[in-house]
């Protein structure tokens, strides 16, 4: 398993977490839970962006592993 595919896997997991949190934030009627979950969702989004950038760099550096 190449480094870029490992990072991609983490990105996928984080995206899954983020979307579940978003669903919870929409479903709940409690304002506190709503605000905490959406704020945290934003933070995770930032991490996802960083990682995706890194995947881009890795694939540029080692194009032979691109898509793996």
């Amino acid at each position: 398993m190449t480094v870029s595919s490992q990072v991609k896997e983490t990105v996928a997991t984080l995206k899954g977490i983020e979307s579940t949190l978003k669903i919870y934030a929409v479903q709940t009627v409690d304002q506190e839970i709503k605000s905490v979950f959406s704020r945290v969702g934003g933070v995770i989004d930032g991490v996802v962006n960083d990682l995706e950038e890194r995947v881009g760099v890795l694939e540029y550096e080692e194009p032979q592993y691109k898509g793996l």
Partner: peptide, 23 residues
């Protein structure tokens, strides 16, 4: 540079984890 970014993001996730723990 990548090391720094990974470390920073790891720290962010740790904070997120602590915030979400009670929920």
């Amino acid at each position: 540079q990548a090391k720094d970014i990974f470390n920073k993001d790891a720290k962010k996730l740790l904070e997120v984890k602590e915030q979400l723990k009670p929920y």
